[in-house]
């Protein structure tokens, strides 16, 4: 896989195949942690951090442990285990050595343990038979797409604070409608074939 291929892969993962708007992965944090742009950015950074590392870890586990024993069918279970352990480990590591990063990412890290976006990034990298470099860049780019979506949506929700939708739409319903409209905007990228 050449450098250009990897760049195209990353571009596709950020915009065309955006995790939230095109694939509907990670909708829970997308709706739950998008109240304010700064918390949304914190969540996005934590996801980026974990997704990139878990992309590398799961690739290694799959190719060095599961494949030699012919246990490819166990990848979902094994990856959940790897990601959960990895997130716990990262949390402890950051708390000890990089307290500043822990203070900004800390509360979001445990939320990511069971985030389906992280798991699906790992599974898709295996399914598409990516090389190690491609798998890591795919995880990183997918997470960037997630960050872009959640931060943009937090901006939209900030504007909605001051509007008064009809009573039946107040709160969560109007949030879902706004998310749908934003997804339609991202659908414009769907025509781009890389």
């Amino acid at each position: 896989m050449s450098f250009t291929d990897i760049l195209l892969l990353m571009f596709g993962a950020i915009l065309v195949e955006n995790f939230i708007f095109a694939k509907f992965y990670g909708c829970c944090p997308f709706l739950g942690v998008s109240d304010k742009p700064d918390t949304a950015l914190g969540m996005g950074m934590a996801v980026t951090f974990v997704m990139t590392l878990s992309g590398a870890a799961t690739w290694a586990v799959y190719h060095f442990l599961l494949e030699p024993f012919g246990l490819e069918y166990l990848k979902t279970v094994a990856f959940i285990l790897v990601i959960a352990a990895l997130v716990q480990f990262i949390e402890m590591f950051l708390r000890k050595f990089i307290p500043a990063l822990y203070a900004s990412l800390g509360i979001y890290l445990p939320l990511i343990t069971t985030n389906c976006a992280v798991l699906s990034a790992a599974l898709l990298a295996i399914q598409n038979e990516y090389s190690f470099i491609a798998a890591v860049s795919f995880g990183f780019a997918s997470a960037l797409g997630f960050t872009l979506a959640i931060v943009v949506f937090a901006g939209v929700r900030g504007k909605m604070e001051f509007s008064e939708p009809p009573r039946a739409f107040q709160g969560f319903p109007i949030t879902l409608i706004a998310a749908g409209l934003l997804a339609m905007a991202f659908a414009g990228f769907a025509g781009i074939k890389l």
Binding site: V61, L65, F69, L71, L74, V77, A78, L81, V82, A85, Q88, F89, M92
Partner: peptide, 14 residues
């Protein structure tokens, strides 16, 4: 056994 070993290894590591 492999999954159990994987889990145990992560447990010990953590």
């Amino acid at each position: 056994a492999i999954l159990a070993a994987l889990g145990a290894a992560f447990g010990i590591l953590l």
